[in-house]
Nucleic acid binder design. Sequence first.
DNA 1: TCGAAGACCGACCGTTCGTTCGGTCTGATG
DNA 2: CATCAGACCGAACGAACGGTCGGTCTTCGA
Lengths: 200, 200
Amino acid sequence: MTTETGRRVRRPGRGTGSLLEVAVGEFITRGYDATSMEDLSRAAGITKSSFYHHFSGKEALLRAALERALDRLFAILDEDGARTGSPLARLRHIVREQVEVLVDELPYVTLLLRVRGNTESERWALERRRAFDAQIATLVGEAVDAGEVRAGVEPTLAARLLSGLVNSVVEWVRPGRSSSNLPEDVTRVAFEGILPAAAP
Amino acid sequence: MTTETGRRVRRPGRGTGSLLEVAVGEFITRGYDATSMEDLSRAAGITKSSFYHHFSGKEALLRAALERALDRLFAILDEDGARTGSPLARLRHIVREQVEVLVDELPYVTLLLRVRGNTESERWALERRRAFDAQIATLVGEAVDAGEVRAGVEPTLAARLLSGLVNSVVEWVRPGRSSSNLPEDVTRVAFEGILPAAAP
DNA sequence: TCGAAGACCGACCGTTCGTTCGGTCTGATG
DNA sequence: CATCAGACCGAACGAACGGTCGGTCTTCGA
């Protein structure tokens, strides 16, 4: 237990948050399955058994990380900009905020996007991801029905490519190093085309 | 050795190609590190030790799969349509063919796109992937310089998003089930925008 | 000052991993 | 019919895995 005022009493320790951060970093560079508890311990500067004092096991670490990413993503859908206005405006808002979250919580979202469903936690995360994507797909369909966009292809395909484009940012973005406004740029590219023909 | 006429002499066996196909399928569903040699053997219908008669080890399987995917991708760059014509036309050709290869060699390309650099083979594949992407990025820059496209964002960012959009197809496409012309649709979406504003 | 509890540790457990080895069976070749 | 090589197998190897256990050290509240 911790007292009301001032968490992390007694020894300075390191806190579960810091350990989670270290663990997620290792999970990303080596892959979850290829990362051993000894790898995590070495990276955190404590022994393997000490790690089990803070987390019940390897999968609990994964679960905590996936929850953090999913909570941030679903929070976007509850914002005003995602619930009011035209379907197209709501879509643009969600895409912009999604890139924001993606950069803000880069390691956690990166881990989420690499999950394949091996463990129970991974299957749970996959299900929530599917629910998130389904809401995007619905919104794309509404935007097409409202005549706000040219329906060049099936809304289902458009929604998938939209998610694919946005999520691909995690593959190369590095925190701190953003000369331009990344969320705005990605949103513009997604809706106006990556390489639109030059005006004649 | 095999005779000129009629490969796979003697026992019917199964052939290394079939074993590779099975192994790649398991690698994709469970992940490379989470897949044991016994998993592979069970899926192939032979014992673990029999598997070593055809492949020198687990990583050799991975290497063979990655080579197959990379060979197909680099072959695109050698086609006429990728070497002659305007930069924009060459880009469109490459994107269309890339989707084609992606669907044609789905499991192998999927595996390639999930590689993170744990083993020597993975690092080798990552390097070749980078070389491929670099050629795309160069071509995007040439198209912008030639005034063939509106340069809304940095060419580097555009190239990355282009690759991300195209490669994301492996996450949901299923072979055989293509009512529409997928390569053409993806190409149009990539260049004209996923959800372009409706004409007034 | 002293008891309690959290942070941490070294040693160890059973299991599973990738790989090896010695050997059997089969079928085309001479 | 004898030979030979490739396809295949059961059993076992050392190493590494995730996880457990009993105990030590440190710090704070009473």
